[in-house]
């Protein structure tokens, strides 16, 4: 994956999203108005986060069997990159909520559980920093990560559906795709998701490469 084409693809898709997402037509809906365009920017943050956390749990499982330090570093750096996208998703969600639901934080189940799932991964990083011995740290944090990932999935996609939530796709509310993700919006939404996932993956590879140089220099 040290090629340059997917980085350019990600950049082009993200820039395309900014132009097309603001200028192409969208459905006219009450309350949402033009803020429906936030779908192109707020939701891809979460997709990028979930992809990065999936990469992390993959390498955590791998590091348990391989016991290799590289897999451990990959797991932690993808969490580091994923948390950035999670925080951006929370902040953009809060701003969107202010102008559609009335408050930045209305203690909606989706908001609360999203915040908790980000906290879960903060706990992962704190746990890592608390253990000095490398072998032990790799093993314990990998096991924690394997538990944290399904909890994050449940918190984001299962529990909010069981409660009354204002968020589309939860608590009896239909998802965006059922009534207004029409073909015009799909033309922007899917490229936006792919573009931001690629950018997120890129940030993770940069972090991983810096970290592996640091590890090598410490070893010397």
């Amino acid at each position: 994956m040290n090629k340059v084409w997917w980085k350019i693809l990600g950049s082009v898709l993200v820039i395309y999203t900014a132009i097309a997402g603001l200028l192409l037509g969208v459905p006219r809906l009450p309350i949402l108005n033009e803020s429906i365009r936030n779908l192109y920017f707020h939701v891809p943050m979460w997709f990028a986060m979930i992809v990065l956390f999936s990469i992390s749990v993959f390498y955590s499982v791998k590091s348990l069997s391989s016991k290799s330090e590289i897999d451990d570093i990959k797991a932690v750096e993808s969490v580091n990159a994923g948390i950035i996208f999670g925080l951006l998703g929370l902040v953009t969600g809060a701003i969107w909520a202010k102008y559609t639901w009335g408050q930045f934080w209305s203690f909606d189940p989706k908001q609360n559980f999203a915040a908790i799932s980000v906290l879960l991964y903060f706990a992962y990083l704190i746990l890592r920093n608390a253990i000095d011995e490398e072998q032990k740290r790799a093993k314990i944090s990998a096991i924690y990560n394997i538990f944290a990932f399904p909890m994050m999935v449940v918190l984001l996609f299962v529990l909010p559906r069981l409660k009354d939530s204002l968020h589309p796709g939860n608590g009896g509310n239909p998802g965006f795709n059922s009534y207004d993700l029409d073909s015009r919006m799909r033309m922007v939404f899917y490229p936006a998701c792919l573009g931001w996932i690629l950018i997120g993956y890129w940030v993770y590879t940069i972090r991983f490469r810096i970290r592996s140089i640091e590890v090598k220099q410490q070893a010397n």
């Binding site: 980085k7 993200v14 820039i15 900014a18 603001l22 200028l23 950018i199 940030v203 940069i206």
Partner: peptide, 21 residues
């Protein structure tokens, strides 16, 4: 005007990312 600003910011950040790379 807003589109232009956002595109410039994205261009700048992505170019920065390329230079870091």
């Amino acid at each position: 005007v807003v589109v232009l600003c956002i595109v410039i910011i994205l261009f700048g950040l992505l170019a920065y990312l390329f230079s870091i790379d």
